[in-house]
Structure formats: structure tokens, C-alpha cells
């Protein structure tokens, strides 16, 4: 697995050289579009981070987490993981930090930690990605697609906890 990315890079440059592509110019063009992509994405990222940090700093996130915990227990998601389920759609780095906390608190091989791992491994940062994808394309009426993704993610979380009981 470690050699996959380097291999792809070397093979690509070799193929390019072999097919007489101007590799130097390709890197100039690629870097140019890379930078402009970052500039296009920046305002959407900034707005998303305001939301995430406001939730975190004000304690509103915690209030929401605590109030939905009893309902989630009913679906089989342990109370210890509600915070992770809630924060996962917003931020990858935040939820990874939380996952690490869970490992230290409950041990990496506990049921809680295994559930948390599968939840992390099988889901994505829905809100963050929506800012990236729909920001770059400047698109309206995205509510339905985001809702489908969120509901699916939630089903995935319930399924993760269920699977960890057997596997």
C-alpha cells in the first residue's frame, strides 16, 4: 500500500515522457489551477469553520449532543459515541482527535473504540464536502442531496455499532 502512490507518480511521469508530453509545462499548468482552486474554495471553508467553531466554543454542540443522546441509545448507538456521530459530518480533524480520545479513554480494542473506528472509516465529512463541492460550482438547491447524505451517514453509524457486536 505504501508504494502505490509513488508508483502511480513515477509511472505517470514515465508515460508522459514516453508519449512526448511536455511534463515541465504540465506541472506549471497543474500548479496554476491548484492555486486558483484553493482561492475559489477559501470563502466556503472560512464560512464552514465559523459554524464549526461557534458550535464548539459556545457549548451549543454539547447541548445538542446531550439532548439527542437518549434518542440515539434507542437505535443502538452508545451514549459515549453520540459526540462523534454529531461532529463527524462537520470536521475530519476534529473527529479524528475525538477518536484518539476514545482510544485513550476506553482502550483501542474495546467495543466503544471499535464502533468508533468503523463509524470513522465508513463515513465522510458531509457538511465540509458540501461546502467544497457546491462552493466550487456555485450551486443552489442542494438541500435534498445533503439530506440524503446525512440520513445515509446516520444509517451507517447505526449499522457500524450493530456490525461490531458480531465481527
Amino acid at each position: 500500500m505504501r508504494y502505490l502512490i509513488p508508483a502511480i507518480l513515477i509511472v505517470t511521469v514515465l508515460i508522459g515522457a514516453f508519449r512526448r508530453v511536455n511534463v515541465y509545462n504540465s506541472f506549471i499548468a497543474g500548479s496554476k489551477s491548484g492555486l486558483s482552486l484553493c482561492v475559489t474554495l477559501f470563502p466556503y471553508l472560512a464560512t464552514m469553520f465559523i459554524l464549526i467553531n461557534m458550535l464548539e466554543e459556545s457549548g451549543l454542540g454539547e447541548i445538542i449532543t446531550n439532548s439527542i443522546a437518549p434518542f440515539l441509545k434507542w437505535t443502538g448507538i452508545p451514549a459515549e459515541l453520540v459526540r462523534l456521530v454529531f461532529i463527524r459530518p462537520f470536521t475530519a480533524s476534529g473527529s479524528l482527535a475525538l477518536l484518539n480520545d476514545i482510544y485513550t479513554t476506553y482502550g483501542a480494542d474495546s467495543y466503544i473504540a471499535r464502533c468508533a473506528s468503523v463509524i470513522m472509516g465508513s463515513s465522510e465529512t458531509v457538511f465540509y464536502l458540501s461546502a467544497l463541492y457546491f462552493g466550487g460550482g456555485k450551486i443552489r438547491n442542494t438541500g435534498k442531496a445533503i439530506a440524503i447524505a446525512l440520513v445515509t451517514t446516520f444509517i451507517g453509524c447505526v449499522l457500524s455499532c450493530l456490525l461490531c457486536r458480531f465481527i
Binding site: R19, G30, F49
Partner: peptide, 22 residues
């Protein structure tokens, strides 16, 4: 965050350019 992703984007858009042209 945007700048830390910039490196990834620049590299892979360059690679894509080569892949596209070849």
C-alpha cells in the same frame, strides 16, 4: 487548511494534466 490542501491539488492536477495529454 486551504493552503495545506494546495500542495495536494497542485501535484495531482499536474499529474492529471500529464495523464490527460498522454
Amino acid at each position: 487548511t486551504a493552503f495545506s490542501m494546495c500542495g495536494v491539488y497542485c501535484l495531482w492536477l499536474s499529474i492529471t494534466d500529464i495523464l490527460g495529454k498522454s
